[in-house]
Design a protein around this nucleic acid. Structure first.
Lengths: 216, 216
DNA sequence: AATATATCGATATTATATTACTGATATTAT
DNA sequence: ATAATATCAGTAATATAATATCGATATATT
C-alpha cells in the first residue's frame, strides 16, 4: 500500500523484512560463542535457500564471506544493525493510549531498533496526566505543538480508524516525517511523508485465505 | 519468511493484503449510498494505479465491471468478504496474555474477519482464571488438551521470544493448523502448518531504513 | 604436497508482480 | 440517431525478486 515512494532504497522490502530475523538468530549464535557462520547454516534454520541468504548478506554491506568458513558473525550483526538504524536514536510520539497503544508503550523492544517513544497522546480525560510504560499521556490538542518543540520525527498512530486521519494531519502539522500507522485505514499524506502501515486485517487476510485454501 | 508454502493461492500476497483496505473503503462508500464504483476512483483514493485496482478486483471474483459505471459496490464487498473468510467462523486460542496479548483479546475487530478467540493461556498464576476482553485465561499446561477437545484450528502466539517455540509445539500437538506469530522469532514447524508472522521488528526495519535514506 | 570439498561471488535464468497497451462497450451528450 | 467518452477486459511488456549455474578459493584431509 505504500509503494511509489521516492525514498525506496536499493535493498528490497522483502530482504529488509528478513533482516530482523537474521539479526536475532545471529545474536543468539554470538552469545553461544559462534564466531563465523555460513549461508547454508542460516538458510537451513529459516528454511530459506542459501542463495537468498547470501544475497541478503551481500545487500547489507560490502563485507565478504570466506569459502568454507562463511561470514564473521560480529561483522554481520554490526552491519545489519547499522542498516536498520539500531545505532541511531529517533524520538517518537504515540497517539491513542488504548489497549494497543498501551501495549506498545509497555513494550521494551523498540530501543533496540533506535526508536524512543517519549510521549503519548489521547483525548480521554481520564487517561491524561497518567503514565503507561513510564511514558506520560498528554491531551491530543497539544500534539502538534509538542512535536514541533521537541523536533519529533516519528509518529505512531494507534487510534480508532475514524480518528486516524485527524491525528495524522496534526502530526504532519507538528513536523513529523514518518508515520507508523496501526489504524486500519489508508492515510492521506503529502508525498514527502513516509507512511508505514501495520494493518492487522492485512495479516488476517493472508491467514484466512490460507485457511480457506487448506481446510475449505 | 513464509514462502515455499504449498498452499499458496492464485491471488498474490500483495493483492490479498490490499483487500482489507479496499473493503474498508467500499463499506464506507456503501454506507454513503454509493452503489457503483470505478477502478479509477478507488485508485485515486489509495494513490494506486487504476490497472492494479482492476486486476485486484478481477482476482477476487468473476464479477465484471461495466464500462462507464464501474463495479457494483455490494458485489465487490461480498466477494472480498468471501475471499477473506469473513463469512466463516474460525475458532482461535491465544497464548501469552501480557500487554500485547491483552490488547488483542480486547480488540473487537477479529470477528469481522471470521476469527473468534475463545480462550487465552498463560503461565503466570496471577492471570489464570481471570478474564480479558471477556476471554478466560487458562494455564498453558492445558493448551494442547483444550485445543484438541474444542477442535481449534488457529493459534495466536504473543509470548516472549524465548517461549515461542515451546508454545508453538504445544499448539501443533493440540491439532492447531495455522499460527499467527507475534513473537520476534522464527518458528520451526512441519510443512503442513501455516505460520503467519507479524513481527514488529520487520516493520520497524522498513521504517528505520526509510528514515535513514530520507533524513540521514 | 596433492586432492577433495564446502562455501563463496558473479552472472544468468526463471518466476512473479506491476504497469502499459489496445480494442470493445455502455452511458452520456449532441 | 450519431458521436464522444469513460471505463472495462484481455494481452503484452516491463520491473522486480527468487533461484540456478559455474568457476574460484580457502580450509581440511589424505
Amino acid at each position: 500500500m505504500d509503494k511509489n515512494n521516492p525514498y525506496a532504497s536499493l535493498i528490497s522490502v522483502q530482504a529488509l523484512q528478513r533482516m530482523p530475523y537474521y539479526l536475532e538468530y545471529l545474536k543468539k549464535l554470538k552469545n553461544g560463542g559462534v564466531e563465523t557462520v555460513s549461508a547454508p547454516v542460516i538458510a537451513k534454520h529459516f528454511k530459506l535457500k542459501e542463495i537468498q541468504v547470501r544475497k541478503d548478506f551481500a545487500a547489507v554491506s560490502t563485507i565478504k564471506g570466506k569459502p568454507r568458513a562463511g561470514f564473521v558473525t560480529d561483522e554481520l550483526i554490526y552491519n545489519m544493525e547499522e542498516l536498520l538504524g539500531c545505532h541511531n536514536v529517533n524520538k517518537a510520539v504515540l497517539a491513542g493510549a488504548g489497549s494497543l497503544g498501551g501495549a506498545l508503550l509497555s513494550y521494551g523492544g523498540f530501543a533496540a531498533y533506535g526508536i524512543d517513544i517519549i510521549a503519548a497522546f489521547d483525548i480521554r480525560e481520564d487517561l491524561i496526566g497518567k503514565e503507561i510504560g513510564g511514558k506520560k499521556i498528554f491531551h491530543a490538542d497539544s500534539l502538534s505543538e509538542i512535536c514541533g518543540k521537541l523536533k519529533i520525527r516519528i509518529g505512531i498512530i494507534t487510534v480508532p480508524a475514524e480518528q486516524a486521519q485527524t491525528v495524522c494531519d496534526r502530526m504532519i502539522a507538528g513536523g513529523i516525517q514518518a508515520i507508523w500507522n496501526f489504524a486500519p485505514r489508508h492515510l492521506n499524506t503529502p508525498d514527502n511523508i513516509l507512511v508505514q502501515n501495520e494493518n492487522m486485517a492485512s495479516s488476517l487476510a493472508l491467514l484466512s485465505n490460507h485457511l480457506i485454501e487448506k481446510l475449505g
